[in-house]
Computed example of a mutant assay.
Amino acid sequence: MKTWKRTTAAAAVALVASAALAACGDAPDEDNDSNASEKSDFLPCILSDAGGFDDKSFNQLSYEGVQEAAKELGSDYKQFESKNENDYAPALENFVAQGCDAIVTVGFALSAATVESAKANPDIEYILIDDAADNDFDGTKDAENIKPILYDTAQAAFLAGYAAADYTKTGTVGTYGGQPFPTVTIFMDGFKQGVEYYAANKGKDVKLVGWEGNDKGVFTGGFDANEKATNTAKQILDQNADVILPVGGPIYQGALTAIADSGKDVALIGVDADFFETDPNTQDLVLTSILKNMKTSTIEAVVAAGNGDFDAEAYVGTLENDGVGLAPFHNFESKISDTLQAELDEVKQGIIDGSIPVTSYLSS
């Protein structure tokens, strides 16, 4: 494990970074005690995007992963919860100044700031969740000391699309996103393919609204649970959709409001985490959730770094390696068809063995 610590230069940087952070939020928290009997001097740190660690989605799962990894390593950890994009660079500077050995950044919005920090600090190991660190779009990472952790969620979303097409009573299902980033549209692409596969194989007419593919779809323009998120969900429901997939962290809360206001029997599909478990307010509405096993993959990457086994090769979660999946139907078990789960198991195996192709920016 690393035992060195940055001294005079780091202290100077800390003063500058702390001053910058004073204008945009609190400085990264003090060390969090892992309660281990034997302390490690390895220090992992985690920076959220603007969604915060209580987003009941990918920030929260990644944060829990760092907590568990620190506990396993017997180390402290530091965290900073961003309020907006202006926090990213100063928070990373502050992490560097405080001697962080591995820095976890959560979400594609942090990619540019992470790359800049990684290039300036090649002796620090970076773990970037949900982005390839390829801001030049040339097919290669922009910094060698970054480990991208990615998820081919199109595979799991395909299963969700199949389930939605089987469940719908109106013959219309819908989706909308926060912004048309690849890590958002990959859900929508897989969902669309699953709906179309079901319709073709069952000979049924099921319509998808909100997404045509190739960045043509309905988006809120951000990732906040605001009036725009609610109105966008209403736009989908007004097209007779009775299953809705919001993709973009907290924007699903707008769908909850829209569903309540509609008075209709509408089912929600969650993303990233199992909404039934992370947000009890969804339990009567959530049909299933498209899962990214972010907590486990974060734990594994941080523990490897702490043990001196950091591997900068990209990790891609799939159905085959359990990096992505579909949550149980929970309260909807009695509402789905008797054959749906067996059909989904068969489709999943087809995706794994390649007999049912699912295309995405990670697989094409």
Rank of each mutant, 00 (worst) to 15 (best):
A14I: 01
L15S: 13
V16I: 15
A19I: 07
A20Q: 15
A22L: 12
C24A: 11
D26H: 11
E30H: 10
D41L: 13
I46C: 13
D49N: 15
D49K: 05
F53G: 06
F53H: 08
D54W: 00
N59G: 09
L61T: 03
K71V: 04
K71P: 00
G74C: 09
E81L: 03
S82N: 08
N84T: 13
D87E: 03
A109Y: 09
K119D: 01
I124G: 00
I127W: 06
F137S: 12
G139S: 13
E144W: 08
I146H: 09
T153D: 07
A156C: 03
A157E: 05
G161N: 06
T172D: 09
G178H: 05
F181I: 10
M188E: 15
G194C: 12
V195I: 15
A199E: 07
K204G: 01
G217P: 09
F219S: 00
G222K: 12
F223W: 14
A229L: 07
T232W: 11
K234D: 04
L245T: 09
P250F: 04
Y252T: 07
A255P: 08
L256W: 00
A258P: 09
A267S: 14
I269M: 11
G270P: 01
D272E: 13
N281A: 15
D284M: 01
D284K: 15
T288L: 06
A301P: 00
D311Y: 03
D311P: 02
A314T: 03
A314H: 02
V316A: 04
V316D: 06
N321E: 12
F332E: 13
F332M: 13
E333V: 12
K335G: 08
D338T: 14
T339P: 05
L340Y: 11
L340K: 09
K348I: 07
K348C: 02
S355T: 15
S360K: 04
S360H: 08
S363Y: 03
